[in-house]
């Protein structure tokens, strides 16, 4: 068989072995990298409990709005019932302040405003304040559970 020395074979064994080696290395590094990413997300989050007791319903007559600073929650009572709103602005996580005179929540960072029901009055907040479940537990106490989010206007009837 004649062999033209100027024409290199398109693939040869050495090329194949080299490429296979590089591919295997990159695959191993890639998989190890992706595998390591899993470790960045802990399976149990180190946060404090998201449930806390707030006292009996009679401590919250209609017209009450009590702020729980550490939990960043406000518990409000009106004629229709009792409900808990998050004080964390849905825009960028600043803590909103309660303006009792105007009956609204103001965010100091970017000027979002919310009604006493948590609805957005003024953007940039993209959605209303989170509303958490309030329930009656043993001993006549009420408990706020920040793991359970409720829809708008859901309140605990007492």
């Amino acid at each position: 068989m004649s062999h033209d020395e100027n024409v290199e074979p398109k693939c040869c064994r050495r090329d194949f072995l080299g490429k296979a080696g590089v591919s295997a290395f990159l695959t191993a590094v890639g998989l190890a990298g992706v595998g390591s990413l899993v470790g960045l997300s802990p399976s149990v989050m180190p946060d404090p409990s998201k449930q806390f007791k707030i006292g009996p319903p009679q401590d919250f007559p209609p017209g009450t709005a009590r702020v729980f600073e550490e939990e960043k929650v406000v518990v409000i009572s009106d004629e229709e019932g009792i409900y808990a709103l998050s004080l964390v602005c849905t825009h960028l996580g600043c803590v909103v302040t309660l303006d009792k005179g105007r009956e609204q929540f103001d965010c100091p960072c970017h000027g979002s405003k919310f009604t006493m029901e948590g609805m957005v009055m003024k953007p940039p907040a993209p959605r209303s304040l989170d509303r958490y479940e309030v329930s009656l537990v043993s001993g006549g106490q009420m408990m706020v559970d920040q793991n359970v989010r409720l829809g708008p206007n859901e309140k605990l009837k007492v």
């Binding site: 600073e69 550490e70 960043k72 825009h91 960028l92 600043c94 803590v95 100091p108 960072c109 970017h110 000027g111 953007p123 940039p124 993209p126």
Partner: peptide, 26 residues
């Protein structure tokens, strides 16, 4: 202080332009 946001919460100068846009949409 997790209870009181810095006001004004001002980003360093190289992020100011982005901060302005963020105030409309994160």
């Amino acid at each position: 202080n997790p209870a009181v946001p810095e006001n004004p919460a001002k980003a360093p100068w190289y992020f100011l332009a982005l901060q302005e846009v963020i105030s409309y949409s994160a």
